[in-house]
Simulated scan of single mutants.
Amino acid sequence: MAELIRRELSQWHDSLKTFRSKAQTGKYPGKADIDKGIALVAGLLEHSGSYALIERMLQDGSALEDFAEDFEDLDNFYNSQFQTWLTLASALNDQFKVNWQALEKDDSARDAVAELEGIYSSTTPYGQLRRINPLIEQVQTINQQLLAEKRSHALDRVGLRINNITAALQAADAPSELQNLALRPLQQCRQTIEKTHSIPLILSQQTEAVTLEDDAYELINRHIEAKVKQPSPTPKPTSGNDPKPPPKPVAPAKLTITVRAAGNSGEVVLETEAQVEGYIRQLQDKLLTEVQAGNRVRVK
């Protein structure tokens, strides 16, 4: 009997040491119980004699009975539920964290994450482990919905800017090198939005696309200005017998000028009718000046 008890205690001891090795690698429950169990079992195993072992077991009977329940929880956690805990840690520290600003505005997601955090911070979460996967799936569903909405809107906005630049390049008869230079940054922006799972990154790329469109128009304008400065080719002399009329000169493409309706400060505060009239007149003058100069105007 003593040998059977010793073999069982040795198995407990080996299992507890394995649990402790895992527990020391991160935020895992049961560390205090593991240490307590190792000390308890080691104290029993140090008795080599059968009589001494059984006598010590009778002395520690109450502690052993209490720890048997703890061991069952620890054994189930580290041998059956450990991967579930890793999934919980990844969800809270990575997947949900990056989009938390959006998730916390949703009551259902906020409540589910709060419950998950309660489980994660508990020293004895064993009875709540079955709640982890359903709660994670609940938040993941909301996260995917928010992500899809933000991505769709951002792709629409970036796609519109790509179409604008494509049309301007065609109107300017831009060479392929310039087309690639003007469009590539916006296309990369679109690719990032399509691939990322970060809502903040989607929003930042959507904002960045505004600057990238401005930069593309600058490149196109420089190309147009350079073409205007080039000397016109000398038309070939025609004979009286040539039925073809001389080709008409091609009008240069229009520059695209950006006019900021709120000025460079990005904000205009008007309090009186006179201020409103003055602001409208000033904006009208800017627009007419550019249009009369033969330019296209973008109002921002």
Rank of each mutant, 00 (worst) to 15 (best):
L169A: 01
N164F: 08
L64W: 00
Y120T: 00
G294H: 02
V269C: 13
S15F: 09
K300I: 00
L283A: 04
Q282T: 13
P247C: 04
A154R: 05
Q284L: 04
G43I: 01
V41C: 01
A293T: 12
F19S: 05
D156I: 07
T87L: 06
I165Y: 04
A63F: 02
K36N: 01
S198E: 11
S90T: 14
E104W: 00
D70T: 12
R184M: 07
D70E: 12
V41W: 01
F82S: 10
R298F: 11
S198L: 04
E72F: 04
D60F: 04
Y279E: 12
I165V: 15
G240T: 14
A23Q: 12
I257M: 13
L16C: 04
D242V: 13
L53T: 03
A182E: 10
R222N: 15
G30I: 05
E55V: 10
Y78W: 01
N241P: 13
I38F: 02
E277P: 00
G37T: 08
I257Q: 13
K300H: 00
N180K: 00
D106M: 07
D33C: 03
I202E: 05
I162S: 08
S176I: 13
S10L: 14
E104N: 02
D33R: 04
R110C: 08
G278W: 03
P175G: 13
I142L: 13
A148G: 10
A114R: 13
S122I: 00
D14Y: 04
T289A: 15
S204C: 03
K227V: 01
Q188L: 10
D111A: 07
K248G: 14
L178I: 06
N241Y: 12
L58A: 09
Q282K: 06
D14S: 14
E137K: 10
I119Y: 12
Q101P: 00
P246M: 01
A171T: 14
D33K: 07
N79Q: 07
A172G: 00
P252F: 04
Q11C: 07
A112M: 05
F19H: 07
V269E: 13
S80A: 10
P200C: 09
Q187F: 04
S90F: 08
Y78E: 11
L183C: 11
A91C: 14
K195C: 08
R130H: 15
A174S: 02
L287N: 08
Y126R: 01
R161M: 07
A168K: 12
A251T: 15
N143R: 06
H153W: 03
L4A: 09
A154G: 11
S204E: 11
S176W: 04
D35Q: 05
P233E: 03
A89R: 14
N99L: 07
S62D: 15
G30R: 03
A39W: 00
K150E: 14
P246L: 01
R260A: 10
E225F: 02
D73P: 08
G278F: 03
